[in-house]
Design a protein around this nucleic acid. Sequence first.
DNA 1: CTTCTGACTGAAA
DNA 2: GTTTCAGCCAGAA
Length: 112
Amino acid sequence: MVLKDGSFFENVYEVVKLVPEGRVTSYGAIARYLGASRSARVVGWAMQAAHTMLDQVPAHRVLNRQGMLTGKQHYSSPTEMQERLEAEGIPVKDDQVQNHEQYFWDPNTELL
DNA sequence: CTTCTGACTGAAA
DNA sequence: GTTTCAGCCAGAA
């Protein structure tokens, strides 16, 4: 997989864009794929910047390791993220994805 | 320059 | 099972 040798953010965006529809991933998985397994925070922080990016980044598919919609609070509407996930066939309850392991998409394992 | 914060994670108690 | 602590990095004040 050829990643852009630009800023760390672009790498994050690229990976997030690679997330298949109906699947979800975690900040740590992305961070680890980029070689910064302990920089998951920066990934999440990059998501915040993604909101200002012209490129559409499916940040709604990025959750924490618990499968909880930690970032829904940062969306235009707190329900946008949940509804969007449900629209892709991902059941969400109490800000938490049901069977998140089933929908989990690890770039290190799936994408390789 | 220093300090703080954060859409996180993993280990330790 | 829960709660707490430390580490990591980029940007803003």
